[in-house]
């Protein structure tokens, strides 16, 4: 086992763990995390393919309010190590990613509870007027979130390759075949989660339009994106809910709140 590989994998896992809570740079998203793990283990193409597939599945995994979503960080990192380092197939990686996402979710809920203590410790430092103390506790919590992924990654990395391959070979063909088939359509859950969040009765017609146009293979996603933006702009301009001013003479520039803000700015 190459020491550089180990260090790189654990570093990427640490980044993904921090991003799993921060949700800023997106190192925890499968398409980034799996690709980076693939690069670290010297098997970039498998990482890329796994990342692309997992990204579609994780499309709807989002933290809204205080609700905690399935954890993309552990799912991506651990399954990418299994695929690119231990030689599991991409479809096995996808099947394993799901229980891993739940394990990661449980871990992050645990850490988010643990940090209640950190918040109280920060209170104590605040009483002393110590900026440094508050900063240290805050960053300390971030480190714990990083370790939340880095430690499992190190453990999975340490398991001998033979053990993993033996375990994978012991899986019967009907199971792997079935998992591969299911892997093709569980993305529907991700789509459904996004739809469930956004759909209002008025918006379903746009879904129907996209579905109908989808059959036109000549229109790639960029073309579809252009069509979608045009429709969205038209909708905003024409929809009565944004034009309640009545016939009040829209010619004055003061009517547009966007204009107002930009002018003031």
């Amino acid at each position: 086992m190459n020491i550089i590989t180990i260090v790189l994998v654990i570093f990427v896992a640490f980044l993904a763990g921090m991003e799993g809570i921060l949700d800023q740079f997106q190192f925890h998203q499968p398409i980034v995390a799996c690709t980076l793990i693939g690069l670290a283990t010297g098997n970039p193409m498998d990482g890329l393919l796994l990342g692309g597939t997992l990204q579609l599945i994780a499309l709807g995994w989002m933290n809204i309010g205080a609700a905690v979503a399935p954890d993309a960080a552990l799912a991506s990192i651990a399954s990418a190590i299994l695929v690119t380092y231990h030689g599991a197939s991409v479809s096995e990686g996808i099947a394993l990613a799901i229980p891993l996402a739940i394990a990661g979710q449980v871990l992050t809920i645990f850490v988010r509870t643990l940090t209640v203590g950190i918040a109280h410790a920060a209170d104590a430092k605040a009483k002393e007027g110590s900026f440094r103390g508050v900063e240290l506790y805050h960053i300390g919590a971030l480190m714990i979130q990083g370790l939340r992924i880095a430690i499992p990654a190190a453990i999975i990395l340490a398991v001998p390759v033979e053990v993993v391959t033996d375990a994978l070979n012991a899986i019967p063909a009907w199971l792997t075949g079935g998992l591969a088939v299911a892997g093709g359509f569980i993305v529907a859950v991700g789509y459904a989660m996004v739809i469930n969040m956004m759909a209002t009765p008025k918006l379903w017609m746009f879904f129907a339009l996209g579905f109908a146009l989808s059959a036109l293979g000549e229109l790639n996603l960029i073309a579809m994106g252009i069509i979608g933006v045009v429709i969205a702009l038209l909708y905003i301009q024409l929809s009565p809910e944004f034009n309640q001013g009545g016939g009040g003479g829209g010619s004055s520039s003061g009517g547009d709140p966007l204009d107002d803000i930009l002018n003031d700015y």
């Binding site: 529907a188 739809i195 956004m198 918006l203 379903w204 746009f206 996209g210 979608g228 909708y235 905003i236």
Partner: peptide, 15 residues
């Protein structure tokens, strides 16, 4: 609203 229109349209394409 605009983002939601675009999002629903693209989801219709992707499904």
């Amino acid at each position: 609203q605009g983002a939601s229109v675009l999002g629903m349209f693209i989801l219709g394409v992707l499904v």
